[in-house]
């Protein structure tokens, strides 16, 4: 397994080329092109802002301006939420490649996660502009944690991506299951509300306890601390999450590796 993991690194060129292809090919022939990537999050941003500002105003303090807070969590969530279905589907979509040419299958889910990651990274400068405009006082040294947070999220997403890709080959139901699961997961992660607020007001409540078990809670929170409030990471929570992410990656890849030989026949 470590051997094939190291091979993954050797496929850099292939991964880069395919990511480039995804990025250029997807929006070719459309006028707005790559901007479409942001239409969906921006729409969500508008809707939630409207709902939580005018319909049922959020009671949490320290989330202002709320659209910025929302934007901060929505960006990484979009990366996560669009990578997984794509990764799950990647082996089926790339069936021709695995079947017809000598092609390293693990490249496909990686490409799904990485190219969505590129979109995420490209969204960061847009966020930065608003951040500097509305909350300049919260920019701090803790922004330096950001690369680590991104890395942890990448590992976690990749691990799940490998697992889902391998399972989807055998059980196509996963695709539909996943779409529903991700909606649940979205509301189970502190994107539109604040976990800190919840944890402080009702630490023993069932909501806070459930949320604590969700790795995405702590990953999104880490984005909030480094890019919104400018505070220090919650070390204990984030540390455990990082370990979980690494384990997810290793187990996901192991699972993928074990089922590798079945892909050609089942795709």
């Amino acid at each position: 397994m470590w051997h094939s993991l190291s091979r993954l690194l050797q496929h850099r060129l292939l991964i880069r080329t395919l990511v480039q292809r995804e990025l250029t090919a997807r929006y070719r022939g459309s006028v707005l092109g790559f901007l479409w990537t942001f239409i969906h999050p921006l729409m969500l941003l508008g809707v939630y802002t409207f709902v939580f500002t005018y319909v049922m105003p959020a009671r949490a303090e320290g989330l202002s301006p709320y659209p910025l807070y929302l934007f901060c969590g929505l960006l990484p969530w979009t990366w996560f939420g669009s990578s997984l279905p794509e990764a799950a589907n990647s082996l089926l979509m790339g069936g021709n490649l695995i079947k017809k040419i000598i092609f390293p299958a693990e490249v496909l889910p990686v490409v799904s996660v990485v190219h969505n990651g590129v979109n995420f990274i490209l969204g960061l400068p847009i966020y930065a502009v608003f951040w500097v405009w509305f909350r300049p006082e919260s920019i701090s040294i803790h922004l330096l944690w950001l690369p680590l947070v991104i890395l942890v999220q990448a590992l976690f997403t990749l691990g799940l991506g490998f697992f889902l890709a391998a399972v989807t080959v055998h059980y196509r139901d996963v695709k539909d299951l996943l779409a529903n699961l991700l909606t649940l997961w979205f509301f189970g992660s502190p994107v539109i509300y604040s976990y800190t607020f919840l944890a402080e007001t009702d630490p023993e409540g069932i909501a806070a306890r459930l949320l604590e078990l969700n790795p995405m809670t702590h990953i999104i929170e880490a984005y909030h601390t480094s890019m919104f409030t400018g505070e220090m990471l919650h070390w204990r929570r984030f540390g455990v999450t990082a370990i979980v992410a690494v384990l997810t990656f290793v187990v996901g890849y192991y699972f993928f590796d074990r089922l590798r030989d079945s892909f050609v026949e089942e795709v």
Binding site: R21, T24, A25, R26, R28, G29, N96, L97, K99, K100, I101, F103
Partner: peptide, 12 residues
């Protein structure tokens, strides 16, 4: 040469 053009992407 099993399948020619396997992996060609139509849009590019």
């Amino acid at each position: 040469l099993i399948e020619l053009g396997a992996g060609f992407h139509p849009e590019i």
